[in-house]
Simulated scan of single mutants.
Amino acid sequence: MGFAIVFSGQGMQHAAMLPWLAEDELVERMRAQLGIADWRECLQDAAWASRNANAQVLLTGLNLGAWAQLSPSLPAPAALAGYSVGELASFATAGVFDADTALTLAGTRARAMDRCAEKVPGGLLAVSGLPRAHVGHLCEQTRLAVAIENGPQAFVLGGALAGLDEAEQMARAAGGHVTRLKVDVASHTPSMDEAAEEFAQALSALPLRSPRVPLFSSAADRLTNASQAARALARQISTTVQWSACMDQIRARQVGCVLEIGPGAALSRLWNERFPDVPARSADEFRSASAIVDWVSRQAERGV
């Protein structure tokens, strides 16, 4: 019984996202940290929206703000996970650290990753419809790395811009579907090793707590204590996000539904393709918070 929450990462942010979200204190703190007055207006600027330092703080604040506005009407989730930077929101929701710390860490994480990207500018490319072996060969030819595994034929590749351009052409020619993500760093690849080390040092200075609810990491398994949480949160910056395996772990919790919080509905689509008997929807699809609560409440009673 119950439901799971998965927090989206960056790459699908848009000005009309989460249309029901109120401008509460948490969202105001996010705006203050970024030094902006209107986050929706800022997202209309494609260059601003794709800038790592903006997107990571923005999405962490909006994801946590959205859950803060939904949580008074819902029980604690039966499982939590986050996709890429979405893990900051999932860890905060699980009680590993508070929302203000999550916002601070989002800025620290982005700055560390940007310093790595200054050496070799890069990004991410979503590739679907091609088998793992073909994607591996494509990476060898273009010097890219698999940043995220979303399924048997769904991957995100990361690396230098020239390699991404080449891989996009090759994948299309092979019959694959490709989408360049709104991300200007090669997240979850070895090019971020220094950023992962720097972020690990920042985490080591914080009084982290054990998760209060079942928390799953895309770079590990279920996290049960603060030390595991710190290692997993830093490690995922420079290693492949195993989202497919993370979904399997959540499914094993026998939840009645999955709610995605964040921009777009990419995680919901991946879930519904993999587990069509357990419905998933994105909070970005709804027009009101009450409609989300009603849907979750009905579906969570189903169980599996």
Rank of each mutant, 00 (worst) to 15 (best):
E198W: 05
L59A: 07
G159S: 06
L223I: 09
Q69D: 10
Y83A: 01
G256E: 08
M30E: 08
V127S: 11
A245W: 01
K119P: 00
G107W: 00
C139V: 05
Q13L: 09
N54M: 14
T179Y: 06
L138I: 07
Q153H: 15
D114M: 11
H134S: 13
Q254V: 00
A16Q: 15
G86C: 04
A79R: 08
R132E: 14
A106F: 01
P121N: 07
V135C: 15
F286I: 08
A4C: 01
R287K: 10
Q249V: 00
I36N: 09
P77L: 04
A68H: 11
V213T: 10
L21F: 02
D193L: 12
Q201T: 11
R51W: 15
G129Y: 01
Q69Y: 06
D38Q: 04
N52L: 15
S50R: 15
Q10W: 02
A220C: 03
R31C: 14
F275H: 09
E197D: 14
T101C: 08
V213P: 00
A46D: 13
S282L: 06
D98P: 01
L62Y: 03
T240I: 01
H134G: 09
T189W: 05
L125S: 05
R274T: 13
Q249H: 08
P190Q: 15
D98I: 01
A102V: 06
R132H: 15
C139P: 04
P207N: 10
L233D: 09
V183Y: 04
I5V: 11
M12T: 14
D24Q: 12
F275Q: 03
S71F: 01
W67E: 12
W20D: 05
E285W: 05
L164K: 05
C116V: 05
L164M: 09
A252I: 00
R253D: 01
